[in-house]
C-alpha cells in the first residue's frame, strides 16, 4: 500500500517537472541557436536596421522587426480598446445575465477561435481592398491594415477577462452609488470600472502579448518590407512574420539571426505576460 502511494507521488512530480524541463530547454535552445548571430553582431543586432542576406554583404539587424512588432501591436491595442471596453460593459454590466449577452458573448469567443490564416485571408481579400477604396497607399498593405486585423484578433482576449471582472463587482457597491443619486453612467465610470480596474488592465496587457506574437495575419497584410516603418500607412515587417517568411531558405548566420529574433520575441512576450499574470495574482 505504502509503495503504491509513493509511486503515485513520484509519477505526479516527475511528469510535472517536465514542464520546467520544456521551458528550460526552450530558453537553452533559443540561446544556443542565437549565439552565432550575437557573436557576429553583438548588441548591434538589436539596434541595426539593416537586414541584408546577400552573400558577402551579409548583415542582420532586428530593429525594423522590433519596431514593426511594437508599432502594430500598440496600434492594434489602441483600436481594440474602445471596442473591447464597450463590449465588456455590454456583457458584464448593462446586459449581464441576459439572453442577448449570451449570444454576443459566444460570438466574441468565436472571434478567438478563428484561425490566424483565415483572418489573414479576410484581411487580404476584404479589408485591404476596402481600405484602398478609401485611399490607403501601397495597395492597402502596411502597418495600419495589419493593426486593424490584429485588433479584431485580440478583442476577445481583452474582453473576456474584463467582462468577467466587471460582472464580479459587488452589487451592493453599485447600489451604494445609486442610493446617492448617481446615474448608471456615473456608477459605471466612478464605481464599477475603478473597482474592476486591475482586471481590465490585465486583460489588455495579455491581449497585447497575443498581438506581439501573431504571425500569419500580419504576414499577409503588413507588406513584408524589411525597413523600419516610416509611418502608420507604411509597409514593414514584424518579428513573427519575418521568421515565417524567411525561414524556408535559411541556414548558417541567417538561421541563427532568425532564432535570435525568436528569442527576443520569446523574452518580450514572456515579460508582458508575466506582468499581466502578476496583476491578476495580486487581484486575487
Amino acid at each position: 500500500m505504502v509503495n503504491s502511494e509513493k509511486i503515485t507521488k513520484i509519477v505526479l512530480i516527475s511528469v510535472s517537472l517536465l514542464i520546467i524541463v520544456i521551458a528550460g530547454g526552450m530558453v537553452f535552445s533559443l540561446f544556443g541557436g542565437a549565439i552565432p548571430s550575437f557573436k557576429e553582431f553583438g548588441l548591434k543586432f538589436i539596434v541595426s536596421n539593416n537586414w541584408n542576406p546577400t552573400e558577402g554583404k551579409e548583415n542582420y539587424g532586428a530593429l525594423p522587426f522590433i519596431t514593426g512588432t511594437l508599432l502594430t501591436s500598440v496600434l492594434a491595442l489602441i483600436i481594440a480598446l474602445p471596442l473591447s471596453f464597450s463590449t465588456s460593459l455590454f456583457l458584464g454590466e448593462y446586459y449581464r445575465n441576459k439572453r442577448i449577452s449570451k449570444i454576443i458573448g459566444t460570438m466574441v469567443d468565436l472571434l478567438a477561435g478563428i484561425p490566424s490564416i483565415v483572418y489573414g485571408l479576410w484581411g487580404f481579400y476584404v479589408l485591404r481592398p476596402f481600405l484602398v477604396s478609401l485611399g490607403a497607399p501601397n495597395q492597402g498593405f502596411g502597418v495600419f491594415t495589419a493593426s486593424i486585423i490584429l485588433a479584431i484578433m485580440i478583442i476577445p482576449y481583452a474582453t473576456s477577462l474584463s467582462n468577467e471582472i466587471i460582472a464580479m463587482v459587488p452589487s451592493d457597491l453599485k447600489e451604494a452609488a445609486y442610493s446617492l443619486g448617481a446615474t448608471r453612467l456615473e456608477v459605471v465610470l466612478n464605481v464599477t470600472v475603478p473597482a474592476a480596474r486591475s482586471g481590465v488592465v490585465a486583460g489588455y496587457i495579455l491581449a497585447f502579448g497575443r498581438a506581439l506574437g501573431e504571425t500569419m495575419a500580419v504576414t499577409m497584410l503588413i507588406g513584408n518590407s524589411n525597413l523600419v516603418p516610416k509611418g502608420l500607412f507604411a509597409t514593414g515587417n514584424s518579428m513573427a512574420s519575418l521568421i515565417a517568411n524567411q525561414f524556408g531558405e535559411a541556414d548558417g548566420l541567417k538561421l541563427s539571426s532568425l532564432i535570435a529574433i525568436g528569442l527576443i520575441l520569446f523574452i518580450l512576450t514572456g515579460i508582458i505576460n508575466a506582468i499581466g499574470k502578476f496583476i491578476i495574482k495580486k487581484m486575487e
Partner: peptide, 22 residues
C-alpha cells in the same frame, strides 16, 4: 510550475515552431 505553465501559454506559436525545428 503553475507560473511556468502560464508563461508557456503566452509563447507565440511561431516560437514553438522554431523550438520544434531545433
Amino acid at each position: 510550475i503553475r507560473n511556468i505553465s502560464d508563461i508557456l501559454q503566452g509563447v507565440p506559436s511561431i516560437v514553438l515552431g522554431l523550438i520544434a525545428y531545433l
